[in-house]
């Protein structure tokens, strides 16, 4: 939480599951609090998410200074984000240090699953909150203390609506959708799919058993986001995961 103005929600809990690291205070960010009343109409002209965006820029700079690449994983609950991370950590950890920040309303279940892979992990419980914001990520990063050059996966709260609006300071946004959710998800939740840099279509091994055509699901992704990289894969069988791994190896920190 910011010690200057107290931003950050009081029921948010940040908890490290990696060994031996105590809580680390998050540095306060710069503020320009002006408190002089101004007469009549006052032009504000401020982005509604200005405070979050300011903190996100702070995170982005912090990450870039350390050569750390953060990826924001978003999806509906049950799409396979945690399973994807477990497989990815197993395959990629020998190549690059990996840390994980898990976001859920409650429980440490996902963080425990990640810890089983040996990767350092921090669980953020948002309480009533439906998304992670840049302040929560700052606190999570302070707790995780990822080494320079590492890859940090941020698993957002399972929700195809709210997380789309909040920049965390990540290098890229990855949206995971599974074929069992139906082929119309990009049309029903266009805001989420429109902000994605990468769309992972998971559980393609189940295509023979569901009434979903992969080409139509891809076309629906394209109709709300022509630029996103679309990667169909199966975490269970490993089909398509090589392309995901190759993309991850190209990821670098960004400054804007």
């Amino acid at each position: 939480m910011c010690g200057t103005c107290g931003c950050g929600e009081s029921d948010v809990r940040v908890e490290a599951l990696a060994d031996g690291r105590g809580p680390v205070a998050t540095a306060d960010h710069d503020h320009s609090h002006g408190h002089d009343p101004v007469p009549g109409v006052v032009e504000i002209e401020t982005a509604l998410l200005a405070k979050n965006d300011h903190l996100a820029r702070h995170n982005r700079a912090w990450l870039a200074e350390r050569g750390i690449t953060a990826l924001n994983l978003m999806s509906s609950p049950g799409s396979g984000k945690t399973s994807l991370l477990r497989r990815t950590i197993t395959e990629l950890a020998p190549v690059r240090p990996i840390g994980v920040i898990e976001g859920d309303q409650e429980t440490r279940i996902d963080a425990e699953k990640i810890r089983g892979t040996g990767a350092p992990v921090v669980q953020i419980n948002t309480g009533a909150g439906c998304h992670l914001d840049a302040d929560m990520l700052a606190r999570g990063l302070a707790e995780l203390a990822p080494p320079p050059g590492s890859l940090v996966f941020v698993e957002n709260v399972g929700n195809l609506v709210c997380p789309a609006l909040f920049d965390l300071g990540e290098a890229a946004k990855v949206v995971v959708v599974s074929v069992t959710e139906g082929e119309d998800k990009p049309l029903k939740y266009p805001y989420m799919f429109s902000v994605a840099d990468v769309v992972v279509i998971n559980k393609i091994d189940l295509l023979p058993y569901v009434d979903v055509r992969l080409d139509r699901l891809v076309a629906h992704c394209r109709s709300v986001n022509a630029d996103a990289l679309v990667l169909p894969l199966s975490v269970t069988t490993g089909e398509g995961t090589a392309a995901w791994g190759e993309w991850l190896l190209t990821c670098e920190p960004v400054l804007t």
Partner: peptide, 17 residues
Amino acid sequence: AITQSVVDAVTERTGTA
């Protein structure tokens, strides 16, 4: 959360008025 940010941004500019 977004509406809360309205209150924060406005009071940063106009204080207690």
